[in-house]
Design a protein around this nucleic acid. Structure first.
Lengths: 349, 349
DNA sequence: CAATCGTCGGAATGCGCTTTCCGACGTTCT
DNA sequence: AGAACGTCGGAAAGCGCATTCCGACGATTG
């Protein structure tokens, strides 16, 4: 018993290589390779079977790194997101991973936590890993220096045969799946106006975040077109805390005649709902609230959130397909959002 | 202009290799390697500087796959989760990724969607990728055939020097970070009994899922110890839908004297809350509801959910540390859950 | 039946990098 | 001053695999 325990530790058998399999099957390296790793060349049934049995008996597993080196192309893609705990990115990642799976690709993932330096570093890492494609999800900042460095990095990557696609804004000169943030926010504004709302506040997120800025702008200009007054715009963070803080600030400053609040994403809206509850503002009785994204995990909120639905998983999948597709030039696919009216927004009479 | 557009397509410059850098710097391959990839050997300042400049000028990026092959060890770890859209796993993954980052490791990720075949396939893939460690998150099933095959696969991997850790139950004979499901559920049962509840129902999830079964058992046996009647146990899915369905079934069958419902995870509890709302059962007025996990995204639920908090991100990080740590034998780290009483459970007088 | 062709197995080369081994040179010690 | 040693640059041998090129063999054809 003791002996067994000891033998378990540090077993560390040598790695089983293709050469081992070939020897064990009594064939050449080339033949073994052709049998086990989808070559275009045929191998006779007898030998093929011997190789396969040898591989199974030895528990052989291809060394993909060696294969990548020899073939000069890998079956791995890279995925760069803000954070997995953000359901928006989790949904994108989920969609991208499903698509990767369909293509027989493995996924390497990295989180930026909205740090542009980290994002740059992640792209370098993925480049070093010789991934076949890089998917960039996460809003671009408007900081031109960062954008320029990212473009340079991506250019080098693409010159070496790498493929890139991005979910968000087309600022990088790469294939892009772009949610129609402006149009979606505008449609939402019109829908809310239809409910009778006239005075709005916008929990706007960080002005330098393009996604946030676009949504604010789409919302605002739609109001203008309708001949309604411009909304009160409260900047802040793009997360739950940001929504909570901005909503608190709004209440403390006095709602005046504001009857409806638009938080530029659902997670912020959740924070806002909490803040309003704490301050005794009833939603939708005293105030209507709308978000953006239609995060699935949040659909059971009370009251259910009016929002703009984005097909996030599908967007992730389309980004991968775009990156992988052979085509000239750079493509931007716009994805429309769909206004979903729920109980968090009431008729305003 | 046309010329420029054409030149952009298919630019595909040759890959820049270490040899290019060495030539450009006028040094040998060996020297370039030593400068650029942390060797133990020193290189004179003059040469070192020349190599570094050459690398920067050429935009060189190490080919990690070649490096892995040459060194025989990689800087990548594999992470196997159920699904990223499940916030439980997203939080685990987030923690593991942060830890990986601290260790300078890249993360390869795969989703099983609770399909044991897929899980097996993922482990094979990761083994083929020669990842340094594999982290298995996600509840083990009690299906012994699958467990055995998984053990065999992992054994081969470890014999080749791979490291493995698992978050969940210790069924695989590997290092494990094990949430104290039984103890946590038992503590929850006692806390709810302290609130005056006597008759419980448990939305139990799938009986073959060890996590679910353990929580049910911990809850039940604590009630027994308190001299209370056994709860009504309603099996079902482990997700929102499962919670919703089980809760609906409960109401339709008649609550009788049940005053408190324990859903074995938060996501199921959310489904249950929705079902109760639909059926006009007020929570916590008519019925108290408790969950398990304390998912962060769900903290703004109304009413706020009584639950057992698990430090998910930390658990992910600890799993990685465990896998990487040099130590004899197999370690199981138990992580305690903390009962958090919130408004979804009321005093029962 | 010889010439031609197609099929399939194997030896050898190379993918980009690390690392061992050698050798050249400059220091230090006796 | 010579021996012993340490430092640092380079040549070359792999790491595990894919693939090209070659050659052997059997089948087809005129």
């Amino acid at each position: 018993m003791l002996a067994k325990a000891l033998s378990t530790v540090g077993a560390e058998t040598e790695l089983i290589t293709l050469a081992d399999v070939a020897r064990h099957a009594g064939v050449s390296l080339a033949t073994a390779s052709r049998v086990l790793n989808g070559s275009s060349r045929q191998v006779g049934a007898a030998l093929r079977e011997r190789v396969e049995r040898a591989a199974a008996e030895l528990g052989y597993e291809t060394d993909v790194t060696a294969q990548t080196l020899a073939r000069g192309s890998s079956k791995v893609i890279g995925l760069v997101v803000h954070a997995l705990t953000d359901p928006y990115f989790a949904a994108l990642a989920e969609g991208a991973m499903r698509a990767a799976d369909r293509h027989g690709l493995t996924v390497m993932i990295g989180a930026t936590h909205r740090d542009p330096q980290r994002e740059l570093a992640l792209v370098s890492t993925l480049r070093a890993q010789r991934v076949q494609a890089i998917l960039l999800a996460g809003s671009r900042t408007t900081d031109t220096e960062v954008v320029d460095r990212m473009r340079a990095e991506l250019t080098r990557y693409r010159e070496a045969g790498g493929r890139v696609a991005c979910v968000g804004q087309d600022l990088l000169g790469v294939d892009t799946v772009a949610p129609a943030n402006r149009a979606g926010a505008a449609a939402l504004a019109r829908a809310l106006a239809d409910l009778g709302h006239r005075r709005f506040a916008v929990l706007a997120g960080p002005p330098e975040l393009v996604t946030a800025a676009d949504r604010v702008e789409g919302f605002t200009s739609a109001l203008t077109e309708l001949g309604l007054p411009a909304p009160r715009v409260l900047p802040g963070g793009f997360d739950r805390h940001g929504g909570h803080a901005a909503a608190t600030a709004l209440v403390d400053a006095g709602l005046d005649d504001v009857t409806c609040v638009f938080a530029v994403n659902d997670v912020m809206a959740v924070g806002a709902l909490a803040a309003f509850r704490e301050r005794g503002v009833d939603v939708p009785g005293d105030l209507s609230v709308a978000g953006f994204d239609d995060i699935a995990t949040l659909r059971d909120l009370v009251p259910p959130l009016t929002t703009v639905r984005l097909p996030l998983a599908e967007m992730g999948a389309r980004a991968l397909d775009l990156a992988l597709s052979e085509k000239p030039g750079v493509v931007t696919e716009v994805v429309a959002g769909e206004v979903v009216l729920r109980a968090s927004t009431a008729l305003n009479v």
